[in-house]
Design a protein around this nucleic acid. Structure first.
Lengths: 135, 135
DNA sequence: ACTTGACCTTCCAGTAGATGGAAGCATTAC
DNA sequence: GTAATGCTTCCATCTACTGGAAGGTCAAGT
């Protein structure tokens, strides 16, 4: 298979596949003309990567997960640890985003959004926060 | 004020303040010795930036917000539009993260996390997804 | 045989938003 | 005088790609 084929089959852009090769996540063979030649196993790795990335795992997580995937003597505990840590990161991010969302939604709600200059959003950004006195 | 002072007062690292100068978000004066000299107005801009960034506004959003902040003839509608668009981006991100969280939490829950190799997390990443048949 | 178009290659640059570190002046404290 | 901070610039690095240029390869059609 050429890169176009695995791109279609894995759902990853060819650019991304080349990048993954560059950072050692996949190692296709080469034909005499210099074209990359992908085996079934390469395709599986790429599909695995696409799925793992879509779940938000970092590239380094993916590296670890692929290694465990290949390792018949793995302990599922190692996989679970990576996933749990990732889940914790997601939860942190969710807390942060929800806090942002709450403040922003409040500010947007308070702003008249007309052609006058008075704006509670700018007031907040400038430091005048009614619901959060300066200690 | 030197950079160390505004750093303490604005809460931004000196590195970040230099970076903000580089990209034109703040323009301190210079002393004869080459040191940056910050006015009160610079400090206000930096505090504004710190707050806006902590609410997740992009640097380009901040640029627009600062311009409106300085503009006595602004329309609050313009501020509100920037904030609403940002809010929409946050909501998108929240939807995405919540979906990831749901899948991940389920997989983590299903994984025994012992010293055996069987692992539903890897099974999922490898494409064997029971609750989501292939088309 | 020649051309066209699709496909492939490498290499370089750029994205967002900083952050880390090195080398080297300036200032302040003792 | 010297040691500790503090300031400067410059360059590199991070994440995870993505875009584009310049050019080689291949298969189909005429």
């Amino acid at each position: 298979m050429n890169i176009g084929d695995v791109s279609r089959l894995s759902g990853l852009p060819a650019k991304t596949i080349r990048y993954y090769e560059e950072i050692g996540l996949v190692t296709p063979l080469r034909d005499d003309n210099g074209y990359r030649r992908f085996r079934e196993s390469d395709l599986h790795r790429l599909a695995f990567l696409n799925r793992a990335r879509s779940l938000g795992f970092t590239i380094e997580d993916c590296r670890g997960l692929l290694a465990l995937y290949q390792d018949d003597h793995r302990a599922s505990a190692d996989v679970k640890r990576i996933a749990r840590e990732h889940l914790a990161r997601i939860d942190e991010k969710l807390v942060e985003l929800k806090a942002m969302r709450k403040t922003l939604a409040h500010l947007v709600h308070c702003c008249a959004g007309d052609n006058r200059p008075d704006c509670p959003i700018l007031d907040d950004l400038a430091g005048a926060r009614p619901e959060q006195s300066e200690q």
